[in-house]
Amino acid sequence: MSGFVLVIRRDLHLAFRQGFESLMVVAFFVIAVLLFPLGVGPEPNILARILPGVIWVAALLASMLSLERLFQTDYEDGSLELLALQPVALEVMVMAKVTAHWMTTGLPLIVAAPLLAVLMNMPADGLWALMAALVIGTPSLSLIGAIGAALILGSRRGGILLSLLVLPLYIPVLIFGASAVDAVLGGFSAKPQLLILSGLLVAALPLCPWAGAAALRQSME
């Protein structure tokens, strides 16, 4: 367990040292969402209608952009091999890296989302559904993305390849995350969607670190 905490602390330290770099993900998220009123037009009704999807798509892209560096820097400077040599299972290491990734990208997105929702005229009762969906859904994004981030290590054109690998797997989270908010705005309960999102998270929690660790092992052979 201590190895788990140590890896999280190390990754958080690194993120804070780099300072603004970890905030760039949030900046990307905010700018991407703010492009939509400019592109679609400022009618409040249309904005409120498309907002859940826009926020989720922007969150997906922001989470994916930061994934490329999840294992890449460790892979390049060799610390990944040192992590693999520790007496802690590699799966636990992957879980720790994913947790740190979520704390540096998922959490800031969740904090920034209500502000964007207000800017885009979202009715107040949709807000809690959006927050709940983001809280349950973004950890799944980090977990699924970790597999992709581990698979592309050492490849040519890693970043663009990562989007091709990870985005199709993100689609279920996007569908149920956005429809949870839509359901509440349409006067229904968001409970089924939130339960499915929780189910996705519960399935991803053990399986993704396992697959990610397998991918890391083959990258270090």
Partner: peptide, 8 residues
């Protein structure tokens, strides 16, 4: 490498 990564 490509064969293994893509298999996963």
């Amino acid at each position: 490498r490509g064969a293994k990564a893509s298999s996963i």
